[in-house]
Amino acid sequence: MKRSALRFIAVCLFSVLCLASAAVHAADGFPSKNITWLVPSKAGGGYDIYARAVGRQMQKYLPNKVDFIYMNLPAGGGVESLTKLYNAKPDGYTIGYVKVPGSIVSQMTLDFAKYDCEKIAYIGNITTDHDALVVKKDSPLNSFKELVAKGTVKFSTTGVGATSWVNTVVLTKEVGITPKYVHYTNTADAMLSVIRGDTDALVVPFFSTLQYANSGDVKLLVLNAASRAKEAPDVPTIGEAGYPGLADALSASRLIGCPPNTPPEVMKVLQDAFWQAVNDPELLTALDKAGFPIMEPCKGADSLKLVHACMGVFEKYKADLVESVQ
């Protein structure tokens, strides 16, 4: 009895040690352990959904079998997660999002955003959304022109630091609307505010509006893209509404990258796995069905171009952005 108890303990300890050492010994070369993915939204948010879906697919294409561990850091419209990424060890085991234009504008306007998007080592761009402007279904406004003519418009945004905020500021400045803001923290709340009639309009990615438009709760007035969307062929583009220069300025991209100075051989492994993942038909159909499609993905080197373009555009709106949160 006594001996069997001791034997049992010995077996327990032994198996614990074996399993622990198995966890430590892994394959050679990058990646040899789990990779942490910093996500600037709560679990279930758009960034989170893309991360989990793309991460799952990237795992298939990485040379060694490792997992992605997702860390949700929604604070500061993504400032927290990007600051953490910027200061992490540049070994490829921490990756994270750069929101374009959200992260870049935060860097330019919020004093505690201490990072530099130009120095991030980019893995690639998952997708580029185009925004749409929605109003309540029984709103007296029936076209973008009428909205501009109204003069003063109350906008919901999905939060200071979010892309929706940035794009609203730019849009209103360019077309000459006097904006009032009500900042929410997510798309659904901001959308409800419009449906409830607390605010007049909302600018969010087109695919987030489709559901609400199809159910007849809201109507789309304008799409910030170069061409009309096949899902909503009646909605005019911003160019057709008279502002062709705005289409590029108002897109939103979800870049992922590593801390500055991550070794190029590590970057290559991640970039290759990423590129294979975002071109995998299995992933593309699953995300398409869910209403979170992958559009205009690009490779690491091209991501930096998006960042530079964005920086150029937003320099002149700095003052308006700062003012909009007062």
Binding site: G44, I49, A53, Q211, Y212, D217, A286, A290
Partner: peptide, 21 residues
């Protein structure tokens, strides 16, 4: 429910006004 919603979306189910219909 927030996490469940993320799971829905990965399953190709989009919660929203049309879902219950």
């Amino acid at each position: 429910m927030a996490v469940l919603m993320g799971a829905f979306i990965l399953q190709g189910i989009a919660p929203g006004p049309q879902f219950l219909r």
